[in-house]
Every structure is written in C-alpha cells, then in structure tokens.
C-alpha cells in the first residue's frame, strides 16, 4: 500500500504544481494594476471575476474531481446571497453573524440536496440537481416579503467592526483575493489527499471503490457539502459586491454558466476553474461592449469549446508546457 500514499505524477501535475502560483501572481498583479491605473470600474470587474471563480472552483471539486455533474449549483450561491440579504433586511448587518449563518445555511441545504440527489446517477443526477435549484429559484420568487422576483436591495455591506471594511473597494478586492487563494489551497490539498483519491477512484470505477470497502456515497456527500458551502461563500461575497440579491442569482442559466466555466478552464485541475471563470467574465465584458447580443457569439463559442477544446485552458497550458 505504499504506492497509494503518494499521488501519481500525472495527478500532481493536474493539481497545478507550477501553473497555479503563476495564476495567483498574475491575479495579484492585475488587481494591483487595476487599482493603480485602470480605476474603480476594473477593480470591481476583477472582484466579480474572483467571486465567480470561487463558485466555479466549488463546482470543479464536484464535477472535475468527483465526476458529479450538478446543473444546480447556482442555488447555493443564491442561498449564501439571500442569507446576507434577509439578515440585512432585519437590521442584522454584522458580518460575524451574517457570514456564519450564510455558510451554515448553504452547507445544510447542500447536505439535504446532496443526500437526496446522490441516490441517483448520471442523467438523473444532472436533472435532480437542476430540479432542486429550480425549486429554490421559485421559492425565492415567491418570497414577497423579501422582494419576490424584483429582488432585494442590501443597504449596508457586512460589518466586521473595525477589522475590515467591505465598503472600501480595495479592501474588498483583496479580501476576495485572499479568500480565493485560501480556498484554492485548501481544495488542492483536499484533492491530493486520500479523500480526493477516493473521489477520483469512484469517478473512474465506483464498483471497484465500493469493493475496496469505501462508502463511496458518504465521500461524495462530504464533497457535495464542501462544494455547496464554498458556493455559498461566493454568494455572500456577491451579495456584498452588488448590494443586491435576486432570484436570478439561482436561475438555471447561472448554473449552466458555472459548468461552462469549469469546462472552459479545464475540468479537475481546480486552477482551471479559476481561469475559466476569468475567461468567461472578461469575455462577457468584452463581447457586450461590441453588441448587446453577445450570446450570439458566446453560444457557438461554447459549442466549439466542448467539441474541439479538450482539456480547456488548463489542457492548453499543459500542452504548451510539454512542447517547451
């Protein structure tokens, strides 16, 4: 069993040993540069991209590592965002209360949805996660007390006493950076651990892992809850950034876009999800400058990425690295 204690070389490479630090250095320089030269608009854009990247990272843990395709992950982003919005509506603006409540709420929702969804496989899993997300979407729509389908304005960002001030866009951007980096490191370690290898093993051959004595569903459920919680954290940040929360945060289009980012970046590499999220947000920004009908370009692009872009951006980088 000694061989099993070290991840095989290919797996370590996938975890982004050399690329991931570069990604974060580039990101830090981009935030710094945007702050110094480009102005507040770009700082906010980068902040949004980092938050979206956090959600995509969460989904990659599930899709790339565990092979569980969730088409309802925007629901957890929405739960995190709504927790902040609803608490703020009742005058509870302290981040020390808002954030833990939001994270516990999204973890609890992920535990319930995961436990039910994991009874199914394949297409059924895709569809039941979609169904649960739709359920929450419609539930949010009928929350007439909290704005219904118009959404809810959040008048004050989470208040952390004097320690960090989210109202300052620079602080907020760096907070998102630190959170993204910490979550990435934590998930990368998780992915390299025994836990990660059980998930990968079950992805390749569920029956074999079960025969080896692993309670596969339990491992997957833990992954689902972790993923849902991280997505909830992204929701908390998103609500604070936009100072607004609406059912649209949970729409199935958002869930589909998250999946698109994961695949665009390259599944299973974690840092790929971050690249995919940035590519998506920046592409959306760029295309929507030329035309309001940016989806006319993005739709076919997505089809092409699926059809010919094996391995996404991370795969491309890996191939470039090999040539060198």
């Amino acid at each position: 069993m000694r061989a099993a204690t070290r991840a095989p070389v290919s797996v370590r490479k996938l975890e982004g040993g050399s690329v991931a630090p570069l990604v974060f250095v580039a990101l830090a320089l981009a935030v710094l540069g945007a702050d110094l030269w480009a102005g507040p608009y770009y700082v906010k854009l980068l902040t949004r991209a980092m938050i979206v990247a956090l959600a995509a990272l969460a989904l990659d843990l599930l899709v790339g590592l565990a092979g569980l395709v969730s088409l309802g992950h925007a629901a957890f982003v929405g739960i995190g965002a709504y927790a902040v919005g609803i608490l703020a509506e009742h005058g509870i603006t302290s981040g020390w209360i808002q954030w833990p409540v939001a994270l516990v709420a999204s973890a609890a929702a992920a535990a319930v949805i995961g436990a039910l969804s994991l009874r199914t496989r394949g297409v059924h899993f895709i569809m039941i996660t979609l169904a649960f997300a739709q359920m929450l979407y419609f539930a949010a729509n009928s929350l007439s007390r909290y704005g219904g389908d118009d959404g809810l304005t959040i008048w004050n960002r989470s208040d952390f006493g004097g320690i960090v001030s989210l109202a300052d866009r620079r602080t907020f951007a760096w907070l998102c950076f630190v959170l993204l980096l910490s979550v990435y490191v934590a998930l990368a370690r998780l992915s390299a651990s025994r836990f990660g290898r059980v998930l990968r093993g079950a992805k390749d051959n569920e029956r074999r892992m079960a025969a080896l004595g692993f309670a596969v569903t339990r491992f997957r459920l833990v992954a689902f809850v972790i993923s849902g919680t991280v997505a909830g954290l992204a929701g908390v940040l998103l609500a604070n950034l936009t100072e607004f929360v609406a059912p649209a945060y949970m729409s199935w289009h958002r869930s589909g876009e998250l999946l698109a980012m994961v695949v665009l970046g390259g599944m299973g590499s974690l840092y790929g999800a971050i690249l995919g999220a940035f590519a998506f947000v920046l592409l959306e920004e760029l295309l929507s400058r030329f035309t309001t009908h940016w989806a006319l370009l993005f739709g076919p692009f997505l089809v092409l990425v699926v059809l010919v872009g094996r391995g996404g951006i991370a795969g491309l980088l890996a191939r470039l690295g090999r040539i060198r």
Binding site: V69, L71, I126, G256, L259, A260, V263, A295, L296, F298, G299, P300, F301, L302, V303, V305, V306, L307
Partner: peptide
C-alpha cells in the same frame, strides 16, 4: 459535454 453544447445552442 451534451448538456454544455446544447446549452450553448440555447444561448445562441
């Protein structure tokens, strides 16, 4: 792949 590509078709 099928979900994503046909999602792209919907967007388009």
């Amino acid at each position: 792949d099928q979900v994503l590509a046909t999602f792209g078709v919907i967007l388009f």
